[in-house]
């Protein structure tokens, strides 16, 4: 997106630049700390910091939609899944069985090659960089007339690059199938136990109050993605986060009785199908696959309908796959604990 903000400077030093340098310094320190930490739980927590820093960095670079995704996926869901995994595997790092020095040598070699590659790259933020000369001006100047969306990122993601996003959605769906195939403990019926956090009244009350606004916010992110930062991916993850919160506080069994697992499985496929069907409808109307201009008499309206439906498909798939993955991880954790 275009940077429309005013630049403030202190003593000739651009505040953007200052924040970038500080955040990058933090990032390097965090990466080193992750490498040197032996306790895996501490490592997982530090990756949370890493993700927070990255998202701050994206915000400073004005990549708001990416920051949004990083916030919801990297800092939220990824940490939760890592913690569930650690509960299964234990918290201590195994002693290295491979040759550490050879690995270090390989990493250093690749690092030197990468540094060598940087020499040829254009200066950071240079307006004459090839990436800004190719299709970017077309997107920036023409997308309002062609697509009619104030948020250029959504236009590019859902319309100009509709194929890529379709591919990403299929990847998310495939990941869900992979987790189901590996951990598929869905037929396991746990005996009714007391919810793990039943004695935490504050958490229960706060969650009860928070969950409806989280759902509302997810819907806002889903349908406001055309006008501001957001879209299907982010909304799906936020939606799933609310359900994950519910199942963490009130127990997996309660959550499962609210959300039927077969329905979620069906929905995860339905989202991908919705996306593909939009493409096929435009194909049947005599246009290219995923050319939404075919969906209505007015091409701009067609684009709006198409993007709305496609984002909805992405959101449904992402939310249901996230819920599926979490349910399977959590039920596996419960199974292991019961065996013990």
């Amino acid at each position: 997106m275009l940077n429309v903000g005013s630049h403030c400077a202190i003593g000739g030093l651009n505040i953007d630049f200052l924040i970038n340098i500080v955040l990058l310094g933090f990032l390097v320190c965090t990466a080193l700390a992750i490498v040197f930490t032996k306790n895996l739980l501490a490592s997982a927590m530090l990756t949370g910091i890493y993700s927070l820093l990255t998202a701050g960095f994206f915000v400073v670079m004005d990549a708001v939609d990416v920051a949004f995704t990083e916030a919801s996926v990297g800092a939220g869901i990824a940490t939760i899944l890592m913690l569930s995994t650690l509960k299964l595997t234990g918290f201590d790092e195994d002693p290295a069985r491979h040759n550490v020095k050879a690995g270090l040598l390989a990493v250093c070699g690749v690092g030197v090659l990468l540094l060598y590659g940087i020499v040829d790259m254009p200066v950071f933020g240079s307006p004459t960089a090839p990436v800004h000369m190719h299709v970017a001006p077309h997107y920036i100047y023409q997308s309002m007339a062609e697509i009619g969306m104030p948020n250029i990122v959504t236009s590019v993601l859902a319309s100009y690059r509709g194929y890529d996003t379709f591919g990403e959605t299929v990847v998310v769906f495939t990941a869900g199938i992979g987790v189901l195939a590996l951990l598929g403990a869905s037929n396991h019926v746990p005996q009714s136990r007391v919810a793990p956090m039943s004695q935490h009244i504050i958490l229960r009350v706060v969650s009860k109050v928070l969950i409806p606004p989280i759902f509302l916010f997810a819907l806002y992110v889903q349908f406001h993605g055309d006008y501001g930062p957001g879209g299907g991916f982010q909304a799906g993850v936020i939606f799933a986060a609310a359900i994950i919160l519910y199942s963490m506080i009130f127990g997996l069994d309660t959550a499962r009785s609210v959300i039927s697992q077969p329905l979620i499985r069906l929905l995860s496929a339905f989202g991908v199908m919705l996306y593909g069907c939009v493409g096929i409808v435009s194909l049947l109307n005599g246009h290219n696959f995923l050319d939404y201009s075919a969906l209505a008499h007015d091409p701009l309206h067609g684009q709006h309908y198409g993007i709305l439906l496609v984002e909805l498909g992405v959101g449904i798939t992402v939310a249901s796959v996230m819920i599926l993955i979490f349910f399977n991880f959590a039920s596996r954790v419960d199974m292991v604990q019961e065996e013990q």
């Binding site: 708001v64 939760i80 958490l203 706060v206 928070l210 986060a241």
Partner: peptide, 24 residues
Amino acid sequence: LMGRPDFLDIALVYALINFVGVVA
């Protein structure tokens, strides 16, 4: 600072996600 109050959306997501993470 940058005159982009829509960044507040991201801050909101962080606050929500942070809460979920802390509960986990």
